[in-house]
């Protein structure tokens, strides 16, 4: 089952992000293509998380434009529809104060998926990410690794064309990291484009094909992981 991709490539053309006149990012000219797993690396404060939020449309560029495959521009209302074909998992999982089941189901309810279908898909996602036995538990009572897998399960049911991950394993122990990385691999295997921010060079080598090295808001290197790192 592959995910059809309409939002790729994501093209940055002279993009700058300078809230209050202070340039934090850019100007950036590059594009994210379908297929390859992309990792964004760089020191603290380089603008990695900002870049991810710009890609996902959570932030709007102050200059330049971001266009996606079907022509929608980041500043246009149409980009909301683009964002709905993508998903993002944050460094600290933001989970609703509800059960594991209700968290996974929530995104399908938003999409207006029929109840029976939503239940089947939620069960399948929780099972795939090893959370089926925890379905009735409060999401906030899960361990860090379980919470991150739940965030991934919630993204999974949306069948995103692009999955953005902002340092998803930075707060996890090695075992939980392995489990989350395996979950991320499921997205790639299913045809989703994976774009991940990480501080870990070894993780970047394991999890990506392409690497963007960011320093002080500028992309200083872009290419195959083996060449950049």
């Amino acid at each position: 089952m592959g995910v059809p991709q309409k939002t790729l490539p994501i093209v940055f053309e002279g993009v700058t992000f300078a809230p209050s006149g202070v340039s934090l990012l850019g100007p950036l000219d590059f594009q994210l293509n379908a297929g390859q797993r992309t990792v964004i690396v760089g020191p603290n404060g380089a603008g990695k998380s900002l870049l991810l939020r710009l890609c996902h449309g959570l932030l709007k560029p102050t200059a330049g434009q971001i266009r996606c495959g079907d022509g929608a521009e980041a500043k246009s209302p149409e980009y909301t529809a683009v964002r709905q074909r993508q998903a993002m998992v944050f460094q600290r999982p933001i989970l609703l104060r509800r059960s594991v089941w209700a968290n996974a189901l929530y995104s399908l309810k938003l999409r207006g998926i029929p109840k029976d279908q939503a239940r089947v898909e939620t069960t399948a996602a929780l099972s795939l990410f090893g959370l089926e036995a925890l379905a009735k538990r409060s999401a906030r009572h899960l361990s860090g690794g379980e919470q991150q897998r739940l965030a991934l399960a919630r993204a999974w049911v949306l069948k995103p064309e692009v999955l953005f991950l902002d340092e998803p394993t930075s707060a996890l122990d090695p075992d939980a990291t392995v489990a989350v990385e395996a979950a991320i691999d499921q997205f790639h295997a299913n045809g989703s484009k994976v774009v991940m921010v990480t501080h870990s060079v070894s993780q970047a080598r394991r999890m990506a094909d392409e690497c963007l090295l960011l320093e002080r808001g500028q992309i200083v290197k872009k290419g195959p992981v083996a060449e950049v790192l």
């Binding site: 939020r53 996902h56 959570l58 909301t80 964002r83 709905q84 993508q86 998903a87 993002m88 944050f90 933001i94 609703l96 104060r97 509800r98 929530y106 995104s107 938003l110 999409r111 919630r154 949306l158």
Partner: peptide, 25 residues
């Protein structure tokens, strides 16, 4: 403040966020 990035990412409008936030609170 806590949820807005995640809810926006999931495609929740502000109008739809009202019942979500009232329920979570």
């Amino acid at each position: 403040d806590e949820y807005h990035e995640q809810l926006t990412s999931l495609g929740t409008s502000r109008l739809r966020a009202i019942p979500t936030l009232l329920w979570d609170g």
